[in-house]
Amino acid sequence: MGRNALIEDFDDGLDAGPGAFGRATLITGQRGTGKTVLLNALEDCAKARGWLTIAETATTGLIARLVDDHLPRLLAEHDPHGFDRRITGLTAGPVGITTTVVPDEHRPRPTLRSQIARLTDVLAVHETGLLITVDEVHAGDRAELRELFTVYQHAVREERDIGIVVAGLPVAVSEMLSDQVLTFLRRAQQVDLAAVANADVAAALREPIEAAGRTIADEALGIAVSAVRGYPFLIQLVGDLAWRANRDATDVSVDDAEHAARSAPRRMGAMVHAPALQGLSQVDRAYLGAMAVDDGPSRSSTVAERMGVAPGYGSMYRQRLIDAELIRPTAHGYVDFAMPYLREYLREHAVGDAPER
């Protein structure tokens, strides 16, 4: 499903009522494919309908942040009965009658479920609802995600106006779908953000240039499209580099496009590749370095040979890098890099020595 189709389905789900298809959405995609941008777009759709939104990332403490920060803040802003006074005594004074108020020690402690229930009750009066988005669920604490999704299911059964959109890397999300408590995710609308078609890349590059009063020739556009390699992150990067290469010219030229094509890999290396490689072990880095020798997909046995390790030993790190979405299997026994220009980045940077046997 394309991005525009997903947004339309999400819009329809918000209008259709509690439990409607599209209100629970699972977005997967490689790094840089636009998951966070799409989450932002869906949040904007909800806000345009008057819904309240909570945007979070699945790092440790997710439930605590919802219960102690986001939900209390929204309740304080929107619940007209949020401040409850209890009169325990009256005192007559020279200027009138005063009351004393003490905390109710027996008041139930707010929970994720009770706070969502109260907030959606308040919003129901205004015919709106609550949207929760959670990015990077692949890195989340499984127990916290179970709690969030379980509470969401209860809210749906109670016909509350609530939606949830989560996003993460494909392999890790696939593992989540096997969790017995998280099975409802299998029934959610699932969207895999694959590479963008060249025609769509061309339109995404040309339209803002022309909207700003400049032009770009077909040859220059073709160079820019090739540099993007269908990767959403690179659309804006290549377009920006080509635009700024010669700001005063009315036309984005072939030279401008070639400048962008040369500069984009280096910029992507600093912005995407370097952070993605942080935290890798020495052996992980050695595996990637051994792959970077090839101009295309690498044979797994050849990579192990270059590392000086047994094939079985190398396969363990092969799987780790697949799980990290840095490489992907192509054909039986072959792997390739999952992100554009990662091979070139590795060739230019030391990634670690081969491990001792």
Rank of each mutant, 00 (worst) to 15 (best):
V122P: 09
E56D: 06
M339Y: 06
G129I: 04
R318S: 02
L346I: 06
V173I: 03
P329R: 13
A55Q: 12
T25C: 08
D69R: 12
L42E: 04
S263W: 04
V151Y: 15
L321H: 15
P329M: 03
S300M: 05
T302R: 03
G17N: 01
P297E: 05
L205R: 01
V156M: 13
T330C: 05
V252Q: 09
N4V: 01
A16E: 06
A194R: 15
E144M: 03
G239S: 01
R343D: 09
I223V: 15
P80E: 12
Q30E: 14
D161K: 08
G279W: 10
L112W: 12
A257P: 11
I54L: 08
D11K: 01
L6D: 10
D353H: 15
L14P: 04
G163M: 06
A276R: 10
V95F: 10
T100M: 10
R85H: 12
T120W: 14
V201E: 13
L326M: 09
R85V: 05
F184N: 06
L221N: 00
T330H: 04
C45T: 15
L321S: 07
G222W: 06
D251N: 05
P80I: 14
L177P: 10
E219N: 01
L221C: 01
R244M: 07
F149H: 05
L74T: 12
A286V: 01
A212P: 04
Q278P: 01
A227S: 06
R267L: 15
R262Y: 08
A249N: 04
D284Q: 04
D251T: 08
G213Q: 14
D135K: 00
A257N: 15
T91M: 13
G2W: 08
A5S: 13
A16N: 05
S226V: 06
A324N: 09
A195D: 10
G314W: 05
I216A: 03
T120D: 07
A338P: 11
D240H: 00
F149E: 09
A24W: 07
G230T: 06
I116E: 09
R86D: 15
P340A: 00
T53R: 07
E77Q: 14
R343A: 00
D255P: 08
E356K: 11
I7S: 08
G96P: 04
G34W: 11
D135W: 13
L193C: 07
T33C: 05
R320F: 14
I162F: 09
D79M: 07
V228D: 15
R343N: 02
E127S: 14
R229W: 04
Q180F: 01
V254M: 09
E8C: 01
E77S: 13
E136T: 00
T215Y: 11
G96V: 09
R3A: 09
R343K: 02
I327Y: 11
A224V: 03
